[in-house]
Structures are given as structure tokens and as C-alpha cells.
Design a protein around this nucleic acid. Structure first.
Lengths: 158, 158
DNA sequence: TGCCAATACTTGTATATACATATATTGTTT
DNA sequence: AAACAATATATGTATATACAAGTATTGGCA
């Protein structure tokens, strides 16, 4: 007969110095928030040298995804990770840096059409070069585990 | 022979209207950020009627955890989910609402000792009453699945 | 046609956050 | 003891965010 010695890491409890959680459910909520905060600051640091914020980066990627088709502000907002952030002012920042163009839609003058510029595309591909490197930040899971994580998160919000 | 028709939900792709992700790893990063944002806004909405923000709530819970032992600001900061937020000003908000007390530590006058007040404890227990209700927001996973989620997140940051 | 609601965005304001820098106090070294 | 480093917190400033309220334009309908 063999006895296995199992190492239970208690990572989260350690990271936020909390003794224990009432339920796995509660721990999961905190765990997601903590992990998100961890990813966000890592993301912030890697984008800072390029002069854009994570949200601006997110919007640029959305625009590249539809390029060369224009997107109206509403489309951008509905694709954004943080639905509550202010698309108008965010896009204005990008325009001020010539990363996107804004133009009133002729068909419907309420709409504003946004397009990513060549400068915006160049910036993204420059950042892309470093992305593999950044993604190694979390290489601790196997593909199967990443899939499982995605399934669980999707189901959680389901 | 039987053919199974499998429904693949593609929840995240739907939520942010993105076609597909390059890798499961990249999807996981976005998925965590999106899920965190989803939890945060839900949390924001439930706490708003009580006049505190999620970060303030978090700090109050930390203080209740150590009550009646005092904590210095540094201890609070190291237990916080978002390490970067400004503990000084956060605690000052709580003090202004008489939810905590601040006093200079006599042994080491650099330190500031923080204690949760009775009013703070009362507020927490009032919110606690609604918490079960709030947690039903994400009751979509079984306990086993929550455990698995926690393990994966811990390992991710590992 | 004129009115009203809906749509698409913009702006104001209060609060929060990131990051750099400053202050006060204590510990350490020579 | 004087000088310097380390610790613990505070503050200044620029930017971001949440939420409410505002403006411009369009669509529908009596």
C-alpha cells in the first residue's frame, strides 16, 4: 500500500492572506476578481510603453477585426469587455493620437463611423510581436485545462 | 450507430460579438477579464444602495476578519484584491462615514491602526443578509465545478 | 405635416485609480 | 551622535469610470 502526499497550494488564500473561504462559490468570485486584477496590471504594464491603455488596445483590436469595414460607436461599445466605459471619450483619445478616424455617417447623421488608421494597424502589429512573449506570463495550464477553464467561465455566466 | 448533435454555446464569442479566438489561452485571458467585469458590475449594483463601493466593502470585510485586532494600513493593502488602489484614501472615505477609526500607533508613530466600528459591523451584517440572494447570481456551477475553477485559476497564476 | 418616442451619441460631475513624489519616523552604520 | 537607508503613509496630478442628463437626428403615426 502506498500513501500519497498531496500538496494543496492554497494560492489565493496566500495571495490575499485570507484564512479560508466559506464556500467554493465565494472563493471563485474572489478568485476571478483577483486573477482579473492580476491580468489587468500585467496588461497595463506591457501596453504602457506603447502609450495606450488596455481599453484603448481592446478597441483598436475590435476595429482591426472589422477593417476595412467601418464601425459605428454603438458597435464598438457592444463588443467591448467593459460595457460601461465611455466609448465616445475612449475613441476620441485614439483619434487625438491618429490611431483611428471619426466621420459622421452620411446615411444617418446620428451615427459616427470609426476606422482604424495605418498608424493604428502598425501599432497593433508592433505589439503583436511581443504578445507571444506576454502570453508566456500564463503558460501554466495545458490546452485542455484552458479549454476547461473557458467552459466553466462561460457556464458560470450562462 | 448513433450520431450526437452537440450544442457548443460559444458564450463569450457571443457576449463580445467576436468571431473566434486564436488560441484557448488568449480566449481564457479575455474570458477572465470579461467575467470579472461582469461580477464587478453586479457587485457594484448590489452595494450601491448601501453607499459603499466594492473596494470599500472588501476593506471592511478584511477588518472584520481581524476584529477586534487592529490592522495597520500596510496589512490592509496587502490583503486587498486590487493591490494598486490607494489604501490611504480608501480608508479615509470609510472613516468619513464612521465605518472605521484611524489612530496613530503609539509604538511606531509611522503606523496607522485601523479598526472597524460597530456601525461598520452593522452595515456588513445587513449586507450579509442579502448575500445569499446575490450569490444566486452565479449558481450555474456545481460545487465540484467551482472547485475545479478555483484550482485552475490558482494554477494559472502559479 | 406636426408631434412624440426612439436612437446614437455627447457632456457634466463626482469619484476612483495609477504612478510618481513627498513627508515623517525609525533602524543602522560608522 | 550624525548621516543615510528603510519603512509607513500621504499627497499631487493626470487619467479613467459611473451615472445622469443633454443634444441632435430619425422614424412612426395621428
Amino acid at each position: 500500500m502506498t500513501t500519497f502526499s498531496i500538496f494543496v497550494p492554497m494560492r489565493l488564500e496566500n495571495d490575499i492572506k485570507q484564512k479560508k473561504f466559506e464556500t467554493e462559490q465565494e472563493k471563485a468570485a474572489i478568485n476571478i476578481l483577483f486573477t482579473a486584477s492580476w491580468i489587468e496590471s500585467s496588461n497595463l504594464r506591457r501596453l504602457k510603453p506603447h502609450g495606450i491603455t488596455p481599453q484603448q488596445f481592446n478597441v483598436l483590436r475590435i476595429l482591426r477585426g472589422s477593417h476595412p469595414k467601418k464601425l459605428m460607436l454603438f458597435d464598438i461599445a457592444s463588443r467591448m469587455i467593459d460595457k460601461n466605459s465611455n466609448a465616445t471619450r475612449l475613441v476620441e483619445k485614439l483619434r487625438a493620437n491618429n490611431l483611428v478616424t471619426r466621420e459622421q455617417c452620411p446615411d444617418n447623421r446620428r451615427q459616427v463611423d470609426i476606422t482604424i488608421t495605418q498608424k493604428g494597424l502598425d501599432l497593433l502589429s508592433e505589439i503583436d510581436k511581443e504578445t507571444d512573449n506576454w502570453l508566456t506570463t500564463f503558460k501554466n495550464l495545458t490546452v485542455i485545462e484552458f479549454k476547461s477553464l473557458n467552459t466553466l467561465l462561460d457556464k458560470l455566466r450562462g
